[in-house]
Write a protein that binds this DNA or RNA. Structure first.
Length: 483
RNA sequence: GGUCCCGUCGUCUAGCCUGGUCUAGGACGCAGGGUUUUCAUCCCUGUAACACGGGUUCAAAUCCCGUCGGGACCA
């Protein structure tokens, strides 16, 4: 069987966003599942909107995600002469022509068709112009575009996901394939490139279905080998419309900054519109490659559900080793101003991370959850020190008790187990452990919700632990308000 | 407006092709419970869907037709 070759063809007119990643991923999975090739093509023919910084964003995002592509990246702006040659060919073969109709003429035509209840399309006014007449008008400096002659017929293609899709090309009219010889347009360059790159399967969003008959017609005119199509369901926003900029920032870069793991993003995206037919939810990229098949792709659009992404992400975070997780969290803590690049911080970051591994939905969460590991002084409302209905005096007594007990514990026995035994024994004396344990925990963390007091105390060390308790005691005794 | 695509729990989906095993399964979310000083993890329970109407058939989520609804594209 022939080698399968797919491509991902983004326009560098913005950062790589989640919808595009899903398209890239499915192209990647399909190609790799079949031992084929996966290519990247930068579609930058729109000179105004294409920016180098977006191209950089796309490349680095794909690399970060681990979606590696084969061979050299193709950039359309490098291949203008190739398109020009093909345009020239169509012109010579009279399969395309220069059209000199003005915006006003086109609008008028459109209006009259619509008011007659007909499909709005170009009626082919300039098609009747002879080569000579066309040249003459061009000489005279009349503005023109290049139109492709659309043969009127019923056309259908077999979509690998949807089955037979039909069109009546008579409803299309002759399509514009280039503004001029140096400025080819989307539907044309795609065909030329896919052919030139020997693409066998075009896997793209369902929003491209209407482009497909046009591209098939151009393929036929150019004598290209037909390609197979698979139109993916769209990723939808909360309002069930196509996910786009107006729904906010859905760039890979944003999710990366927030601490979503590449494997989690891919896993989440893969299960949006595809599933292996089993109850399994967590897959590595390699496993996805192994399981993937176009046949199991959904037809309907799938809503981008951040809660589900969070769940997948936290699941991957919990699987990480503590040292790796600490390394991954470090930049986020630095971003929050909690740590400096000092390598000695790593030890304490590891402690923080091992206590909070199960509580992170995304890496950046570490900053809010475990800030007390890094802050010199905690700030919190003194009221949160009070356990349930406990009074200020009771709380003060509780903290002093903790201080007293913990002071007696030698440095060498300062570990979670011993701390637990010691404190629990005391805590059992009360009708509820919370009377002793809650104020202690809050004093150490400055938070209503946190990891347990023994593990926190153990991680903080004796000195800091006692200092924090003392600070809480002082706060209560001064009757002062925490900030 | 025209063309095309789609329609199972709130969300992602299994089942549909090859009708019966579907009083429709799983996951996320949510609610309740257990463990627990709190939060999280973990465990248990619950919640909730075949868009509607007709047809074919002994039998339809599954096949056919229509309606409605949603979306994409073009303008």
């Amino acid at each position: 069987m022939e080698e399968i070759r797919t491509r991902f063809a983004p326009s560098p007119t913005g950062p790589l966003h989640m919808g595009s990643v899903r398209t890239a991923l499915f192209n990647y999975l399909f190609a790799r599942n079949n031992g084929g090739k996966f290519y990247l093509r930068i579609e930058d023919t729109d000179k105004e909107r294409s920016l180098p910084k977006w191209e950089k964003d796309i490349l680095s995002s794909l690399q970060w995600l681990g979606l590696s592509w084969d061979e050299k990246t193709v950039r359309q702006s490098d291949r203008i002469s190739l398109y020009e040659k093909q345009l020239q060919l169509l012109l010579e073969q009279k399969k395309a022509y220069h059209c000199f109709c003005t915006r006003e003429e086109l609008d008028a035509q459109h209006q009259s068709l619509v008011s007659n209840g007909e499909a709005p399309r170009y009626l082919g006014t300039c098609r009747a112009l002879s080569q000579e007449e066309q040249q003459e008008k061009i000489q005279r400096g009349e503005k023109s575009v290049i139109r492709f002659i659309v043969e009127e017929k019923r056309l259908h293609f077999h979509d690998l996901i949807r089955g037979k899709v039909e069109f009546n090309t008579a409803l299309m009219g002759d399509i514009v394939i280039a503004k001029d010889l140096q400025t080819p347009l989307y539907n044309f360059v795609v065909v030329v490139d896919d052919h030139d790159m020997d693409i066998t399967h075009v896997v793209r969003g369902e929003d491209h279905i209407p482009n497909t008959p046009k591209q098939i017609l151009i393929q036929e005119a150019l004598g290209c080998k037909p390609v197979l199509y698979a139109h993916l369901p769209l990723i939808l926003a909360e309002d069930r419309t196509k996910l786009s900029k107006r729904h906010g920032d859905n760039s890979v870069t944003r999710f990366r900054k927030e601490g979503y793991l590449p494997e989690a993003i891919l896993n989440f995206l893969a299960l949006l519109g595809w599933n292996p037919g089993t109850d399994r939810e967590i897959f590595s990229l390699e496993e996805l490659v192994k399981e993937f098949s176009l046949e199991r792709i959904q037809k309907g659009g799938a809503m981008f559900n951040i809660q589900r992404l969070n769940w997948v992400n936290s699941s991957y975070i919990r699987q990480m080793s503590t040292p790796n997780l600490a390394k991954a969290c470090f930049p986020h803590l630095r971003e929050a101003g909690l740590v400096s690049d000092d390598i000695q911080n790593m030890e304490i970051v590891e402690k923080a991370v091992s206590l909070y591994k199960e509580r992170l939905q995304k890496l950046s969460d570490i900053s809010d959850l475990a800030d007390f590991f890094f802050l010199k002084k905690l700030t919190y409302q003194k009221e949160i020190l009070f356990w349930k209905e406990a009074s200020q005096d009771e709380t003060l007594y509780s903290l002093q008790k903790s201080f007293e007990l913990l002071s007696s514990l030698p440095e060498s026995s300062w570990n979670e187990e011993v701390l637990g035994d010691l404190m629990l024994k005391e805590a059992e004396k009360e009708k509820n452990r919370g009377y002793l344990l809650w104020p202690l925990r809050v004093a150490l963390t400055g938070k209503k919700a946190s990891a347990g007091p023994f593990e926190v105390a153990s991680a903080l060390g004796k000195e800091l632990t006692l200092q924090r308790i003392q600070e809480a005691v002082d706060m209560l005794q001064q009757g002062g308000e925490g900030e």
